[in-house]
Structures are given as C-alpha cells and as structure tokens.
Amino acid sequence: MRTADWTDSVSVLDRVTAVFEAFGEHDEGLGVSELARRANLPKSTVSRIAADLVTQRFLDRDGGKLYLGVRLFELAQGVEHPRRLRRVALPVMADLRDATGHTVSLAILEGAEVVCIAFVRGAEASTPPARIGGRLPAVSTALGTAILAFSPPEVVDRVVERALERRTSAHRVDAPALRRELAEVRRLGVAAEAGEGVPGRASAASPVLGHSGAPIAAIGVSGSDSDGFRDRVAPALRTAALTLGRRMTAEGLH
C-alpha cells in the first residue's frame, strides 16, 4: 500500500503510473477526488497530471469524470500484435534452436528497420542481433532482407530510398546490388549476412509468410562467422519459417 512517505519521494513517472493504475476494469469514469484517493496523491497533483493526460489523449474527460483515453488503446493495439506473434513463435523458435544449436531471433519490419520481438539463445555463448525492441537497418541484416525480398515493390522502394538518405561510411547502400540480392533471396528462400550486423557473427533468415504470400515477420539464426553458414542452416530455417507461417495464419495473424 502506498504511504505518505511514498508520495513525497516518487518521480513524475511514478505519479502518472499511479493515476493509470487507479482505474479498475469496470470503472465507468472517476472524478479527480476518487483518483487522488486511489492513487494516494494530493488532489492538486492529480488534477495537474490529469489535465496533461487529457491534452495528450491518454485520458478522456466527460464533465467531471475521467476515463482511460483512446490513445492508450491505440498504443495497446501496437503491442498486442507482437505479443501474439511471440506466443505462437516461441515453440517453433525453440525447435529451430535445438536443431541448429544457434541463437534464434524473430523480427518484424517497421519503416526502414527491423524490430526484434523475440529471441531464444543457442547452445553457444552468442549474442542476439538485437535486444528485444531493438532496431536494425533492414537493408543490412538477414532478417530485413528476408522480409524485403517478399515485400511489395512499393515497400522495397520506400525502404531503399530511406536507406540511401541515411547512408553512412559504415553502411553504404548499393541499390542495384541490393535488388539483385533480394531476387536471390526470393529464389533461395533464405537471406544471409556475415559481419554486417555484428562483427565476427554470421546470420541467416527466412521470411514468415501469411496466406497471401506477404511477409508477416522473419525468423533467423546467428552464430560464428564461417564459410557455408547459410547452407548448413537453410533446410531447418526454411522448415521453421513454413511451420510458423502456417501457425500464424491459423491464428489470424497477418
């Protein structure tokens, strides 16, 4: 239970969190006084916080009552999809880890980047390409090129354009070479890179396709940079991607 000492020591973020947590599942709206009582915060503090949250659409106001706002539900929808993807994917990812011994990652495309939403560590002490929620340039990763190879042309064009705009000496983008690489990935069903994402590490990835053939995500493995990495893991990787695509389609994920 929150005490008076707690209200004197907490940060602004703690206070905002306390306001959100004051709402119950079946509340039909709360006044500032009730919010303050439940959050164990001064009424004046809750009034100021609520005013800011209403402005940002995190709370809605109807007369003297406050409700959780539309923007919270919009943000929640963005979280729900990756959460469902992870739930369906983790058993398949564990099987792929067991089959290859390598760390397995799952990523989705967002803008010109891939976002890692799950990983399963392999037997070797390997580091995943990115932390959960971490972002990597789509054009320089196996996960990204696996998705782009099966994406509509307008998506590829947009990602390539943004990559060219943001190119650095460390990540130069050769658009014609990239398009040739994407064609090769479409032929093989597996993308690969060595040392671009993490020096000394090799990665391979396959797209997870929905019923329409559009990519939902990409599943990849990473290990020590060595010759023939893609060829060794490709059969297990393609099987995992196909299995996962069928399971995600059955779950209505697309």
Rank of each mutant, 00 (worst) to 15 (best):
182 L>A: 08
177 A>M: 04
119 F>H: 03
90 L>A: 07
54 V>T: 01
77 Q>R: 10
73 F>S: 12
156 V>S: 10
30 L>K: 00
225 D>N: 06
12 V>P: 13
4 A>C: 10
67 Y>H: 15
241 A>Y: 10
30 L>Y: 03
114 V>N: 02
234 A>R: 04
104 V>R: 12
102 H>K: 06
144 G>W: 13
22 A>I: 14
241 A>R: 00
108 I>T: 09
82 P>Q: 14
243 T>F: 00
45 T>F: 11
44 S>A: 02
221 V>K: 08
210 G>K: 07
149 A>G: 11
84 R>D: 05
1 M>G: 06
210 G>N: 06
127 T>H: 00
58 F>G: 15
105 S>R: 08
123 A>R: 10
110 E>Q: 02
19 V>H: 06
208 V>W: 12
54 V>S: 03
230 R>E: 01
252 G>N: 06
98 D>H: 09
80 E>R: 07
27 D>P: 15
191 A>C: 05
103 T>Y: 01
219 I>G: 03
87 R>G: 12
224 S>V: 00
230 R>Y: 00
195 G>P: 13
49 I>T: 03
158 R>K: 03
216 I>S: 10
153 P>G: 05
88 V>S: 13
67 Y>F: 11
26 H>F: 13
8 D>P: 06
141 T>Q: 09
155 V>C: 01
200 G>D: 03
55 T>R: 12
205 A>Q: 02
77 Q>I: 12
183 A>S: 05
33 S>C: 12
219 I>A: 05
245 G>D: 04
33 S>E: 14
75 L>T: 08
1 M>E: 11
35 L>A: 07
183 A>G: 05
211 H>D: 11
3 T>F: 12
25 E>Q: 03
